[in-house]
Amino acid sequence: MKRNNSAGNRIFMALVFVFLYAPILLLIVFSFNAGTSSSVWKGFSLDWYGKLFHNRIIMQSVYTTLLVSFLATIIATFAGTFAAIGFYAMRRRVREPLMTVNNIPMMNADIVTGVSLCLFFVAFFTFWGDFARWFNGVQSFIDLPVRLTMGFGTLLLAHITFNIPYIILSVGPKLRQMDKNLIDAAQDLGCTWMQAFWKVIIPEIKPGIVSGALTAFTMSIDDFVISYFTAGSSASTLAMTIYGMTKKRVSPQINAISTLLFITVLVLLAIVNIREARQERLRASRL
């Protein structure tokens, strides 16, 4: 029965891949096109890539993207790892509902997360303004800023927020796979709880931490929707800049920068997957 279907299966598979990857392939091909057309091939050139690196707006947004991704990943990795350990120490009856709550932001539509964060920041700024005016009125030693606006700070907070669940999801299973007695064993051999944490727990869950951090970094790099609603007007990530450029005349620079973004994310995802496959093999060989 399997054999009968195999030709049909292959065609179907091919169609799926064409629909998935033909547009991206087209984008990559035209990023090397000489001339400004995005439908007629005029010969190979690296012009658009060259121009890209002289475009100050794009370079600025690349810098913003990398910085926000990097900082958000580091902070989320710390927070998420400790949160995962907290979950691990909880009783199952408490842990499971909380894990569901943790998973909701990942399933949630980005636009809902983005808009709700945006509303939250605005509400907070209003409250802060009232508070700062009152505070500046009753004393004159510290002058609190009255007007806060969205920018790099809110962008970073938003990225940390949506990254933490990925870290927890990646570290949690590593903790549960760990032999519970390892912590007892470390304490038995002279470690305080903190020493046991650094010398035994961290090395055991390190693969999970690294995988989680890589996933979080990937998510940050290619996020558009949430950034769009939380970056305000002063900060712009690469994805936002590309979107902004498409509103005006479509420049083939978009093809070039999109290609670079695609390849970066692809490489990161490949690293995550290879790591996971390798760990799975290692675990299988241990059993």
């Binding site: 032999d179 007892d184 064993a185 470390a186 051999l189 090395p203």
Partner: peptide, 29 residues
């Protein structure tokens, strides 16, 4: 606390540290 008792334990399923080799496992204490 356990780390100040003159008592050591052999755990069920051994609880050896997987990231350390035999020498470092024994030398841990």
């Amino acid at each position: 606390p356990p780390y100040r008792r003159k008592i050591n334990t052999v755990f069920q399923k051994y609880a050896l540290f997987p990231h350390l080799n035999v020498f470092e496992n024994i030398a841990f204490g």
